[in-house]
Amino acid sequence: MQGTLSLGSLLILGLAWILQAGPVLQDALIPVQENFDLGRFMGKWYELAVVSTCPYYMQDKRENPVVVALDLQQVAPDGNFTMTSARFRNGTCKHRTTNYRLTDTPGRFFHHVARFGADVDSFVVHSNYDEYAMMLLLSTEKPSGIKTSKIKLYSRSLSVSAAVLEYFKRLVREHGLSDDAIIMNQNKVTY
């Protein structure tokens, strides 16, 4: 009986350790842009392509696959930044501002989406700053604990080269998603 209790206690302790270590190990496996430079990342971007494990997000994007104009501005004195997005929807241009908090890892940021009660962990996976950036966003809704991921392709212009698009598709596949699921946003309005 005592051996059963000890084994059960060890299993519970082991499971608790795995659950606590899980996110840390998962984050350690996410490659962030080497030598990330926040200053060079700021400025105007366009969201050209997206893919997500969230069915509601994907349905919304399929119904209205428009290019989203983004403006990233650093906020003094704390160094955090804001992202203002502009998208054409239902005949009007809608703006939304999101506040991003920096982390100790350059190229990794946090923000909260109150509408869904979601904490979002964002990673700049790769960028050459002048042409494109690839982002991985991991969300956890509260209190449900539902986890989703998004991969986004940003560009400084309204198009990217075939090589950049192929690199984006490879990143999508590396994260277990299909090329067929990628939504290519369309430029329906001039910004």
Rank of each mutant, 00 (worst) to 15 (best):
M1D: 05
G3Y: 05
L5D: 06
S6C: 02
L7H: 00
L7V: 06
L11V: 08
L11F: 09
L15S: 02
L15H: 01
A16V: 11
A16P: 05
A16H: 01
W17T: 07
L19W: 11
L19I: 03
Q20Y: 13
Q20I: 10
G22S: 11
G22L: 13
V24G: 05
D27A: 14
D27C: 12
A28Y: 14
L29E: 15
V32M: 10
V32P: 03
E34R: 14
N35K: 15
D37Y: 10
L38V: 10
G39K: 14
R40A: 12
R40I: 07
M42H: 03
M42D: 04
K44Q: 15
Y46Q: 02
E47R: 04
A49Y: 02
A49M: 10
V51G: 00
T53E: 03
T53N: 05
C54R: 13
P55V: 00
Y56I: 08
Y57T: 07
Y57K: 09
M58K: 08
K61Q: 10
E63Y: 08
P65D: 08
V67Q: 14
D71L: 14
Q73L: 14
Q74N: 06
Q74A: 06
V75Y: 06
P77I: 03
D78Y: 08
N80S: 13
N80F: 06
T84C: 07
A86R: 15
R87G: 02
F88I: 03
R89A: 04
R89G: 00
R89V: 11
N90K: 15
N90D: 15
C93K: 13
C93M: 14
R96G: 00
T97F: 00
T98Y: 09
T98K: 10
T98G: 02
T98F: 12
R101A: 11
T105F: 09
T105N: 08
R108P: 09
V113I: 07
R115F: 04
F116P: 00
A118L: 07
D119L: 13
V120E: 05
D121R: 11
D121M: 06
S122T: 09
F123E: 00
F123A: 03
V124D: 01
V125Y: 11
H126T: 08
Y129F: 10
D130I: 13
E131N: 14
Y132A: 01
M134N: 02
M135N: 04
L137C: 05
T140I: 11
K142E: 10
P143R: 09
S144T: 15
I146T: 14
K150M: 03
L153A: 01
R156A: 03
R156K: 09
A162D: 12
L165F: 13
E166S: 15
E166N: 15
Y167M: 11
Y167I: 09
R173Q: 08
R173D: 03
S178G: 00
D179T: 09
D179C: 04
D180L: 09
A181H: 13
M184T: 00
N185K: 10
N185Q: 12
N187P: 09
N187M: 09
K188L: 12
K188W: 06
K188T: 06
